[in-house]
Simulated assay, not measured.
Amino acid sequence: MKGRFDPVRILPPIVAPIVALLISVLVSALVLTLGGHEVISTFQAMWEYGTRPGTINGILNKTVYYYLGAVAAAIGFRMGLFNIGIEGQYRLAVLLAGALGGASFTQGLPGPVRIVLMILAAMVVGAAWASIAGLLKVTRGVSEVISTIMLNFIAGGLFAWLLTTDLLGVRAPGSNSVTTPILEKDAWIPGILLIPGTNARFFGFGIIAALVGVGYWFMIERTRFGYDLRATGHSPSAAVASGVDAKRMVVVTMMLSGAVAGLIGLPELLGQTHAVAENVGGYGFTGIAIALLGRNHPIGMILGAMLWGALENSAQILDLNDIPRETVTIMQGTVVLAVVVAYELAARIGRRIQQKQVGESTGTAAVPPTPPTSPAKEEVA
């Protein structure tokens, strides 16, 4: 039990994000001071605005987007893959899901069935788009970082081309905006009155996001596939030697990452706008940062997503006080950078302490006491 609760192993991952957050606050305070703004009053205004019931609800809704993006990125990270294409995957996925849900040939189906079809369609589209990068990597050796970045640009072009009145888009009378057809009310996922003191509702899709997090944890920690995934991420050559098909793992992992990425746009589609507009986007890259911030752990990513959502929502009060909201962007960037450095330093310090402890324990046990020299041997010497 001593090894399980060893503070040398447990405390560094807890202390590292706290230190990173403090560093970000100090850097932001310096930026505010250089800009001629009052530091204490600015942070106080952000805190007061961020703790209002309506703002808290907005933070939780942002958390749903960011958490799904973080899980999508974390699936790749656990195998050493960098899925930078989450943005493009979810934009295409939500567009085709919205078009399917609003299509005339699906209107005869019950609302819950259309919701399920939209969720499945989004996951299939995201997985299919991500699989391109996986196939390029295993067949041509193309880095998934490069291919997913390029696929983001292609997905953006396809999104703009498909969302036109000639294809999947419609224009409401008297409006200049093009969207997918508005979903019927029976295909909406109702919100939940979660926070007392406000009529704002928490996304009902948040329950599905929580289930995705549980499924991610179970897959990674409790299944043979998850073990193979982690083993391949730690050492591909050792995994291959143990019988793991590394190429297959790359493709399947990218598809799983893309499938989760396809869900990112659905909370807004099913719970708020009920149609896909041209301004969809922006959550994919943030999910990558939050996965780093939470160290790919399901609980850590929830906390990271909530922190990100809190900073983003609190930034709205800065505009009203004539303070550049870019201050929050500086805080977010500093948090990610500082937490990566802090985790690495904590890991190195922890390894050194453990090595020292092991060395001391084995040295004490391995070196027997020196026997006394007999008088006869002293005379021979």
Rank of each mutant, 00 (worst) to 15 (best):
G282T: 13
I207P: 02
L292I: 11
A310D: 02
L263S: 04
Q355T: 13
I84R: 00
T198W: 07
G271W: 10
N321T: 09
E221F: 10
A121D: 02
A342T: 06
L211C: 12
N57W: 00
T106S: 10
T63F: 06
S147H: 04
G80C: 11
M118K: 04
T33A: 15
L158S: 07
L100K: 05
R9P: 04
R78S: 07
L100V: 15
I264S: 03
L11I: 15
M123W: 04
T139V: 03
V25G: 06
T370W: 05
V15L: 15
T232N: 02
A231H: 11
E48R: 12
L22P: 01
R201Y: 02
A231R: 02
R248W: 14
G265L: 03
G281N: 10
A210C: 13
L256W: 01
T164L: 07
G304R: 00
P371T: 08
I40M: 14
A128Y: 06
A29M: 09
I115T: 10
L100M: 14
G85A: 11
E221R: 10
G69A: 14
E221C: 01
A238I: 08
L320H: 08
L311T: 07
T179P: 00
I146L: 15
L117D: 05
E378L: 15
G134W: 06
A122C: 07
A275M: 15
A231N: 12
R201L: 12
L32I: 09
F285P: 00
L32A: 08
V341E: 00
S235R: 08
V252N: 00
A342V: 04
G98I: 05
G108V: 13
V71H: 03
N57F: 00
L68E: 05
I192G: 04
D322Y: 14
V138Q: 05
A155K: 02
M1T: 14
A121W: 02
A305T: 07
V240I: 03
L11T: 14
N152F: 10
A73Y: 03
S361L: 15
V27T: 02
W188V: 05
N279M: 10
S28D: 04
G350P: 00
T148F: 04
Y67W: 13
I208H: 04
S143E: 11
V64T: 12
M79R: 08
T55Q: 13
A231K: 02
K137H: 13
L193R: 13
I220K: 01
A45L: 11
T63W: 03
A342Q: 05
A261E: 03
P372Y: 03
E344T: 06
G213Y: 08
G197Y: 09
I182L: 15
V358D: 04
L345K: 02
A238S: 13
S28P: 01
D166F: 08
P12L: 11
I207S: 05
S131V: 09
I353Y: 04
I189M: 14
L136A: 14
P7Y: 09
T373R: 12
K377W: 04
S175V: 11
G350N: 04
I220M: 15
T42W: 09
L60C: 07
I220R: 02
N61Y: 03
T329Q: 13
G204S: 10
G80Q: 05
A238Q: 07
I132R: 03
L168G: 01
T139C: 03
D245T: 08
R230V: 10
A315Q: 15
G204A: 10
P112H: 11
R348S: 08
V8H: 06
A74N: 06
N279A: 15
P181M: 10
